[in-house]
Design a protein around this nucleic acid. Sequence first.
DNA 1: GCGGCTGGGTGGCTGAGCCACTCTACCTCT
DNA 2: AGAGGTAGAGTGGCTCAGCCACCCAGCCGC
Lengths: 237, 237
Amino acid sequence: MPDPIERPSLIDVLESRLRADIVAGTYPPGTLLPPERELAAGYGVTRATVKNTLVRLEQLGLIETRHGVGSRVRDFQAYGGSELLPWLVGQSGSGLLPDIFEARATFGSVIARIAAARAKPEDARDLEELLERVRSAPDARAAHDAENEVHRAIARITGNQVFVFLANSVLNGYQPVRRALDAAFSPDGTAQALAPLVAAIVAGEPDAAADTALVYLTGTAGPMLDLLTGTDDGGVA
Amino acid sequence: MPDPIERPSLIDVLESRLRADIVAGTYPPGTLLPPERELAAGYGVTRATVKNTLVRLEQLGLIETRHGVGSRVRDFQAYGGSELLPWLVGQSGSGLLPDIFEARATFGSVIARIAAARAKPEDARDLEELLERVRSAPDARAAHDAENEVHRAIARITGNQVFVFLANSVLNGYQPVRRALDAAFSPDGTAQALAPLVAAIVAGEPDAAADTALVYLTGTAGPMLDLLTGTDDGGVA
DNA sequence: GCGGCTGGGTGGCTGAGCCACTCTACCTCT
DNA sequence: AGAGGTAGAGTGGCTCAGCCACCCAGCCGC
């Protein structure tokens, strides 16, 4: 079953319009956005709707709103924080995919190392059970979901909430990716690729875990990149 | 000159109230928040104000709002992404400070390694100039700002925007930390501690860079933790 | 010159209200 | 008894009209 469809709200639409304008440079960093009343008139919505949208953009770190002054575009490329990552990960066409995959491989590797050093017996049991769930998944979609759970579990084993958040950002962002992956990977293949990583962590071997994670993550990065950028036919049956 | 004071907006106040309630478990994950009209009546504000607050919380990933249903609290500890990091970093008292410092040291180390491998001559020049600026800073506050610029520059050298965002999250979050640090560190000390890291990157030695960064970042973590948790008197003159 | 004042432009927030969506309980027809 | 439809209550989405608080530039009087 594909994801349920949803009608985007006006705020959603307006947000992506303004965001695109900001990213494209229509409103360069440091400049003021047009006043709310003007934006409202221009886009044919109320000030309240515009306001809601601006609240979102502010929370995202793209603008900075000040009472009596206006909304100023921030230099998010230089000073933007990780609150932009989830959005970035979702922006498949942003040209930053290689960056994301590199970060994923680099951090995944060090997280795996720490997890291996700290895995307790019950963690090992959980991990193996999750791996089994990947193996027995009925289709690629389910396998991918189960695979995500494995990655979440590894991050959780470190006991560091920051690592968990970081892992989630990448995993959550894969929603749009999932559709592309459905046909490309089999549950069996996923499980086989994942197995050595789980084994290293279960065995408590930090170096091996780090190495395996690096191999695994850089290995899957290539096909994914191809899929996402459309360099190939979209995957084999 | 300290930062200018600013009167918090109603949205700010309401946001921190609701956020605290969510974190404290008043509204456990999976439950629905009270309806907007009810919240508005309860807190003595308009629905529009409540709405704006909820938009923020949704952007933060703490709740999920659906038309005709309500706002459901997400299990952000398990599934929250890095959009929560900036807030987390700002929450000095959250008990997650050790996690943050570990992540900072771990990632800082690998970022330093990559930067060293990729530093071009002009990058090296920029870096040394920035280090000089730390040395010649008139006070601890200015030194700290300049130090941040060094870290940003190192992240930028990797050429990976994700690393830049990540570094910024930690650096931006230090705003509340800065005040505590003012008295504790001298420009000279900062510059001396930073120098070996810059040298390793400038020399293009990835392993040395990674090691130095690890030493440097774990070294500063201890005093900072003490300062922030108030285990000591607040620093020496 | 320099301090205070004033007015125009901006965001903050209100109050009332209609519309769209979701879900449940009931009702009807088979 | 079960399947299908439907009405209504409860919820968020969005509008309209308007006042207030704030910032700032430019004027005025000292």
